[in-house]
Nucleic acid binder design. Sequence first.
DNA 1: TTGAAAGCGCTAACAA
DNA 2: TTGTTAGCGCTTTCAA
Lengths: 322, 322
Amino acid sequence: MITMTEIAKLTHVSQPTVSRVLNGSQTVAPDIRERVLACAREHDYQFNALAKGLQGSKTQLFGVLVTDISNGFFADLVKQIETAARKSGYSIILFNSDYNPRNEREYLDVVRRYRVDGVLAVPIRETSPEWREYVKKLDVPVVTVTRRAEGLDSVYVDHFQAGAMVAEYLLGRDFRRFLFIGKDYDGKYTGFRQALAQTGFDAWTSNIVYQDDTQLHQALAAWVHQLPDRGAVFAGNDIYALRVLDALRSLGVSVPEEVGVIGFDNTSMGGYLNPRLSSVSQPIAQMAQEAVARLLDRIQHPGQQELFDHPLSAELVLREST
Amino acid sequence: MITMTEIAKLTHVSQPTVSRVLNGSQTVAPDIRERVLACAREHDYQFNALAKGLQGSKTQLFGVLVTDISNGFFADLVKQIETAARKSGYSIILFNSDYNPRNEREYLDVVRRYRVDGVLAVPIRETSPEWREYVKKLDVPVVTVTRRAEGLDSVYVDHFQAGAMVAEYLLGRDFRRFLFIGKDYDGKYTGFRQALAQTGFDAWTSNIVYQDDTQLHQALAAWVHQLPDRGAVFAGNDIYALRVLDALRSLGVSVPEEVGVIGFDNTSMGGYLNPRLSSVSQPIAQMAQEAVARLLDRIQHPGQQELFDHPLSAELVLREST
DNA sequence: TTGAAAGCGCTAACAA
DNA sequence: TTGTTAGCGCTTTCAA
C-alpha cells in the first residue's frame, strides 16, 4: 500500500507537504495540491491509522464489550452503536464476554493495547466495587450501557422502575400470582417485588433461574399446578419469554386466559409470535446514541468531573400475551 | 500508559532488553528478567499494538463485514467468528453494511486503513465482477463467508443444493404449489425451482420480494386464495418465515394443514415458535471456524495460489410447520 | 508556502 | 548477554 513518503517521491515534494495536502491544509500551492491528490487517487492511497494513532492519541476506535451478541437485544444495540460511531468516523472493535468475568477482564486489557479512544461496555458485574475500581483506573474513558454502574458514566434504562411498572400493569389485568424468570438480584425483579409488596402480593411471587428447557418446563408445570388464581410470568428477557410460551403450550395452558406472559427487551420477533408477546421496550437507538455522544464528549474533554447518570425510561408494549 | 522505554529507564536497562523480556526471549539474565517483569506488572504494562503493527505487518486484527448484525443468523455468525479469532489472538473490527453496497465499499477502505491482517466478509454483490475485482486488488486477504464468490476464498453453504433439497422434501410432504419469499436470483430459489421443474411443478411456483408486512399479507392472501392444492411457503430466512406464520394466522390459514412453511437459517427461536418452524440449518460454527482457519492460512502463507472453495452442506430441521 | 528534523513505541539488525 | 542504531508512516515543530 502506498505511503505518503512514496507519494512525495513520485510528485517531487516533501512528505510533510503530502501530509498537508491529504489533510486538507489550505497553505499549499494549487498545482502541488493537484499533483499530490491525483497521485494519491491513482494509487488508491489509504492513510495508515496505526501510524496516525501512534503519536496523537486518536485511533478513531471504540472498544465495544457486550455480554452476548447472539441475543437479539444486544445485536440491535451493537448495530445502533456501530451506526452512531460511524457517523463520527469511529470504528468498533467487538468483544463478546459470554457473561464470563474473566473474558471481560481480559478484553479490557486487549482494548487498551489497541489504544482505543473509548470503551462502551455492557458490564457483567456492574455492582462489584473491584470491577468499578479497575475500570476507573484504566486510562480510557468507559461508558456503561444498559446497566448502571455506580461512579461511572452510565446510559441505561431503570430496571427497577420498569419492573415496578410491569407489576402495576399485571395487577391491573387481574393477575394475582407472579413468577419471574431470572436472577433474584436482577433490578427488574427487585422493582417488581417491591411494587407487588406494596399491594400485599409479596407472598405470591417467586422467581426461577433459567437453566435449561427441561428444568423450565418442570418448574412451570409445578407453578401452574398450584395456581389458585390467574398467574402471570414476567420473563427477564424475550428469549426466556419465548421459551415460557412454548412450555405453556406443551402444558396445555392457554395464554393469556389462564396465564399471562410478558417479556423484556421487546425484540422484533415479539410482534409476530403466537400469541404476540407483550414486552418492555428499551430505547435501544437512543441509548446507543447517548452513550456514543457521552463517550465522544469524554474524549474531547478529558478530566471533566461530573458523572453522566441519566436513566432512560422503558415502555410497555402490550400485545396478546397479557 | 507505561512504555518499554519508561520501563527501561526505571530498571536501568536498554529498551530492546525490555522488549526481549516481555516477548519471552530466553537470552536475558534472570535477575534482569525479574526486575523488568516486576516493573511491568507493577505498572500494568500493555504493549502498544499500533506500534507493533507499524513495522511488522501483523496487527492481530480481522475486519468483519456483515450485512445485518441484527439478523440472528449473522449475530450468531459474528459470535462464532469472534470466538474462533480470539483463540488465535485476533480481535475483530465489525462493520455492518446494511445491504448497502456503498457502505460495503467504504468499509473495505476503512479496514485497510487499520492494516487488518485479513477480512471476513458476507458480501452483498458476490456475483458482481467489479466487486470481485476490487476485492482481489486489495492487499489484504479476504475470505467470503456464507456466500460463494467466484475467484475468492469462500466458505459457504450451497444454497442451490439446499433449495433443491427443500423442494424435494416439500413434494414428499404432498405440497403441490410453492411460494418463495425472497429475490428471484437467490441461489436457494434457483435450486428450488430447478428441482421443481424436473418434476413438472415449475408453473406452480412463484416468488415475492418482501417489502413490508402489509404487502406480504396481501400477497399471501392472494396466493392462498387461488390455491387449488395444498401449498407451501419457502421463506428466504427465518425472519421472513416468522412473518409469514403471523400473516397466515391472521388470514385464518392453518399451518401445516392448509399451508406449509419452511424457513432458512434455523435460528434458535424456530424451535419455540407456534407452530415450531421447519428450517434449513447452516453449520454456523463450522463455517466460522473454517473461514478463520483459511484466513490465518492465507496470512501465514501469502502468495499461495489455489483457491479454497469447498461448500458445506445444509441440513433440514423438520418441525411442526411442514 | 515548503522542507528538514524529531519523535510516537516498537522490532530487527548489528556490534560489542 | 546486552546495547546501539535504524526505521515502520505519520504529525508536529521549527526554519527557510
